[in-house]
Design a protein around this nucleic acid. Sequence first.
DNA 1: CTCAAAGTTGACTAATTTACTCAGGTATGG
DNA 2: CCATACCTGAGTAAATTAGTCAACTTTGAG
Lengths: 167, 167
Amino acid sequence: MGTLAGNLQEELMKLSTKGRYAVTAMLDLALHSGNGPITLAEVSSRQDISLSYLEQLFSKLRKASLVDSVRGPGGGYELKRPSSQISIAEVVLAVNEPISATKCNGKGGCQDGDLCLSHQLWTELSDQIYQFLSGITLEQVIQRQFVQKVAERQNHRFREEDVILFS
Amino acid sequence: MGTLAGNLQEELMKLSTKGRYAVTAMLDLALHSGNGPITLAEVSSRQDISLSYLEQLFSKLRKASLVDSVRGPGGGYELKRPSSQISIAEVVLAVNEPISATKCNGKGGCQDGDLCLSHQLWTELSDQIYQFLSGITLEQVIQRQFVQKVAERQNHRFREEDVILFS
DNA sequence: CTCAAAGTTGACTAATTTACTCAGGTATGG
DNA sequence: CCATACCTGAGTAAATTAGTCAACTTTGAG
């Protein structure tokens, strides 16, 4: 299933509960840093995430070089870099198998252009989302410093009832 | 958008292939608008999405007032509003059952503050993502007018190798 | 050295979601 | 009428999520 595509940006952001768990756990680590490693048992009880599930997530976070592990008594996990240098995008991508952007990869029938156009548009959009999340660090989230008015860019003339379907 | 400014949303964005299918189909509709309704069969063959799956998606898109349907021969679907007034966020939210932001909703044990803090931080972040996608319309995607340099905001001091793990 | 605390790994699984198919409807233009 | 197209709901295989369980390895403290 995994395409060995050499191209960059063939993979998409995926935002689900899995990524939220990972970000929440990383925020917990950032919030409680300073006194040595933090055990997953602490994170588990504080954030109400099962210990075994955290172990899976942190296995991936470690492989992505986002955390360091210390074994033995007094051990635990700690951020490998300062929280100001770890982006949300990194955390989300570390735990998610990224989904393939192009369904039409090896397949034919993509010459008529239409198919590839939509794919490319979505890929570019996904890239924008990635850029956005890359610009937000754990520390910025904690300090609530991430931009407040990002949506005030262009013709933004939704009526009230259109917006409310968010609830 | 005064509505979103007040209280935080309790529902989160979810980005998966499902939303991509919906956006792709909506882009197809936008690209081929002007000659009356477009059949799902056309969209199906052009975008390589199964007809029955499209029917499910468009049922939700119609309930969300994003498309109008015309029955009978010569019928099909068309955008209810101009593509410049339909945001990506609307499309994605229309087809996804939104996931709950707060696991600790009715539960106790949320008094110690830590749990709720992480939840709130993630909720605020999710709100930012929503704001971001709300600011991008179908037309902007087609015209590729969505902001090119959204990530150049704050202390953006990632090293190269940190960013590249997107591949 | 021993023991217990912690991470590490892999196999397994129930529940849920995704991505469909199928079998019927209903509305409507020609 | 009748073919076309939307509409609805039931069902379902595959994948993902969100875990559990068992068996390790490493290491600090006593």
